[in-house]
C-alpha cells in the first residue's frame, strides 16, 4: 500500500528531477499535483510531455522548471501559454523542442530498454540538429536511418479515474502517452479521482493498463485534473482557463493557493 497525501507525494520529487506529465492539453492532466509542486517551490525541474498546456505553463511561470522537453505548449482556443512563452523568451527555461513523435520515440526507447530508436526521416526540421539526433548506417542495408536517444523520466506523474491502494490504475478514454510513460519511467506517481477496492478495479480489468510495481505513491484527488477535464466525471472549466490565461506571476502565486487541492 502506497497511499499518501498530495503533500507527501510531491515531496518525493526532488529539485532537478525529470518528470513526465500525463494527459494532453486540457485532458486528464495532473493539475493538482503540479500546483502542489509549485506550492512546495520546486526548482530546476525538467518537464517532459508531448503536448502541454496549463501544467507546463504553471511550472514555467512560477520558476519551478528549468527545461521543457515537448512538441507543443499552448492553450488551444485560449491563446498562447503566456508564462511558458515569457520564460523561454527570457532564457529562464530551456525549451528542448521536439515533435510529439520524437518525444514518443524517446519514451519508447526507454520503455523497450534500448539506448536509442530509429525513426522516420524528419531531418530537415531544425530541432533534429539542436537535439543532436543522429543518423546511423542501417546494418541490414538500405542507407542511413535517423535515430532518437532514450529519455528515461525519473517520475511519470499520471492522473487517472480509478486506482487501488497499491497503484494499479485504470484509464477511461484516450491514454495519450500515459501507458507508455508508465513503462519508460523509473517510478510512477498516481493521482486518482478515487481509490477503489481491488475487486471493483478487477471488474474493469480491460481498462487497467498501469500495473502497480513501479508505483511509489497513490493519492486520492477528486477533481485532480481541474481546470482540465477528467471524463466521464467532468469537463474542462473553460471560464477558469480564460481567467488563467491572463494571469501574471503575482496572479499565478495566488492561483495555486486559491485553487485547492
Amino acid at each position: 500500500m502506497v497511499v499518501m497525501s498530495l503533500e507527501e507525494a510531491a515531496e518525493l520529487v526532488k529539485d532537478g528531477s525529470l518528470i513526465c506529465l500525463s494527459g494532453n492539453l486540457l485532458y486528464r492532466i495532473p493539475a493538482a499535483f503540479v500546483r502542489e509542486l509549485a506550492r512546495q517551490e520546486k526548482k530546476n525541474l525538467r518537464v517532459m510531455k508531448t503536448a502541454g498546456g496549463y501544467d507546463v505553463d504553471l511550472l514555467c511561470g512560477l520558476g519551478c522548471a528549468k527545461e521543457v522537453i515537448a512538441g507543443f505548449v499552448s492553450f488551444e482556443a485560449f491563446g498562447l501559454a503566456k508564462n511558458f512563452r515569457k520564460a523561454v523568451e527570457e532564457g529562464r527555461v530551456k525549451y528542448s523542442e521536439n515533435t510529439c513523435y520524437t518525444v514518443i520515440a524517446a519514451l519508447r526507447a526507454a520503455a523497450y530498454g534500448i539506448p536509442f530508436i530509429p525513426i522516420a526521416d524528419i531531418s530537415k526540421s531544425y530541432f533534429v540538429k539542436e537535439r543532436g539526433f543522429k543518423f546511423v548506417e542501417n546494418p541490414y542495408g538500405g542507407g542511413k536511418v535517423l535515430t532518437v536517444p532514450a529519455i528515461k523520466p525519473e517520475f511519470a506523474i499520471i492522473h487517472v479515474q480509478k486506482a487501488d491502494e497499491d497503484g494499479n490504475a485504470l484509464i477511461y478514454g484516450p491514454w495519450f502517452e500515459d501507458v507508455l510513460m508508465a513503462r519508460a519511467a523509473e517510478k510512477i506517481i498516481i493521482t486518482t479521482e478515487m481509490i477503489v477496492p481491488k475487486e471493483d478495479l478487477r471488474r474493469d480489468i480491460d481498462a487497467v493498463w498501469i500495473p502497480s510495481y513501479k508505483v511509489v505513491a497513490v493519492v486520492e484527488v477528486p477533481k485532480g485534473a481541474y481546470p482540465g477535464a477528467c471524463p466521464p466525471y467532468y469537463d474542462p472549466d473553460f471560464e477558469m482557463m480564460e481567467k488563467y490565461a491572463n494571469l501574471d506571476e503575482e496572479g499565478l502565486k495566488k492561483h495555486i493557493w486559491e485553487v485547492r487541492p
Binding site: 508531448t50 503536448a51 515537448a70 512538441g71 507543443f72 505548449v73 499552448s74 498562447l80 501559454a81 511558458f84 512563452r85 523561454v88 523568451e89 525549451y95 523542442e97 521536439n98 515533435t99 510529439c100 513523435y101 520524437t102 522516420a120 526521416d121 524528419i122 530537415k124 526540421s125 530541432f127
Partner: peptide, 18 residues
C-alpha cells in the same frame, strides 16, 4: 534580435514529411 516564442509544431515535423 529578440526571440518570439511559438508553441512548437506538435506532430507537424513528422506529418508534413510523411
Amino acid at each position: 534580435g529578440k526571440r518570439v516564442q511559438f508553441p512548437g509544431g506538435a506532430g507537424g515535423a513528422l506529418l508534413h514529411a510523411t
